[in-house]
């Protein structure tokens, strides 16, 4: 299959005054993939997104969306982009519906009321779409912003913290929606977030940016492979806790008791052996859970490396 890139960023440099905020950022987002953009606060995530969406001009470098240069052919490039930058602000004195109508009026192609209704249904805002935005919660504004972003059936979505302020159910709904858009409609999704679990759950590839430079771009499987030692949490029957610790000591693993659970730092490849040993000793294992995520471990190590 021919892989085409929807968003292509080359050698982006942004200098404000004397300070260089972005140093030589390059990456590609392919069609149908969800591309995570992670970084600690102040790393340059939002600046990059502002440049991607034409809100700011780069000092040098180029951004192409669907083959159009964002600076030279802004209108053509943005015709195929839906975007949310930071919190999506809607006009407070208009209703959600009127806000979407405003978006529809300036879209490149005509958008019918039915299409708007569809988008509203998709983001789960149908119940309160005719209320003034003044009374919306942050999560509802996010949903409204997302509805506006997918209104003109874009081929690329650029989302900055799209689940910020949403309740757990909303987060899951948005996650499912993004997966559906990418898998079924072939839309490229560029998503910046600091929520590692969110990134882990949906992203095909992840770029980590720190202090204005891209530290690494890795696919999800590459990240899982790279992280060999993990922290796991073992829950066994209460009366077996003591003997479980003894078994672990015998096979050369250090268990740490914490609120009735046993915490273990272990090589990934040794987990089956540990479980077999516990079962042979007649210990009832109720739960074996991973602490943190592969991405989290990876994120911490990559950004620390950059700092040193």
């Amino acid at each position: 299959m021919q892989v085409t890139s929807t968003i292509s960023v080359r050698n982006l440099v942004k200098r404000i005054g004397r300070r260089e905020i972005l140093h030589d950022i390059s990456f590609e987002v392919y069609s149908g993939e969800i591309f995570g953009f992670l970084g600690p606060n102040g790393a340059g995530k939002t600046t990059t997104i502002r440049i991607l969406t034409g809100l700011m001009k780069p000092t040098s470098g180029s951004v192409q969306v669907c083959g159009y240069d964002i600076m030279k052919d802004f209108t053509l490039a943005m015709s195929s982009v839906g975007a949310i930058v930071e919190t999506p602000e809607a006009f407070r004195f208009l209703t959600g519906w009127q806000n979407l109508k405003q978006c529809a009026r300036v879209s490149p192609s005509a958008i019918s009321d039915d299409q708007i209704r569809n988008c509203v249904d998709t983001v789960g805002l149908s119940g309160r779409i005719h209320e003034k935005v003044q009374g919306y919660s942050l999560g509802m504004k996010q949903r409204l912003g997302l509805a506006g972003a997918i209104l003109s059936s874009p081929s690329a979505l650029i989302l900055d913290e799209p689940t910020n302020g949403m309740d757990p159910r909303g987060v899951r709904e948005i996650r499912d929606l993004l997966l559906h858009l990418a898998r079924d409609r072939g839309i490229s999704v560029f998503i910046s977030t600091h929520l590692l679990l969110e990134a882990q759950a949906v992203c095909d590839r992840v770029a980590i940016i720190d202090q204005g430079s891209i530290v690494s771009i890795k696919s999800r499987s590459e990240i899982s492979d790279r992280v060999s030692s993990l922290r796991v949490e073992l829950t066994v029957a209460n009366e077996h806790t003591g003997s479980a610790l003894t078994v672990l000591q015998q096979i050369g693993m250090d268990g740490l008791l914490d609120h009735g659970r046993i915490l273990i730092q272990i090589e990934r490849t040794r987990i089956p052996f540990m479980l077999k040993s516990l079962l042979l000793a007649d210990i009832d294992v109720y739960e074996l859970a991973r602490q943190g995520s592969a991405l989290e471990d990876y994120f911490i190590t990559s950004t620390q490396e950059a700092l040193t």
Binding site: L55, T75, V81
Partner: peptide
Amino acid sequence: SDGTIKGILLRPLG
């Protein structure tokens, strides 16, 4: 000041 200008700037208007 309230950031709503983004909503228009992000549309393919110019």
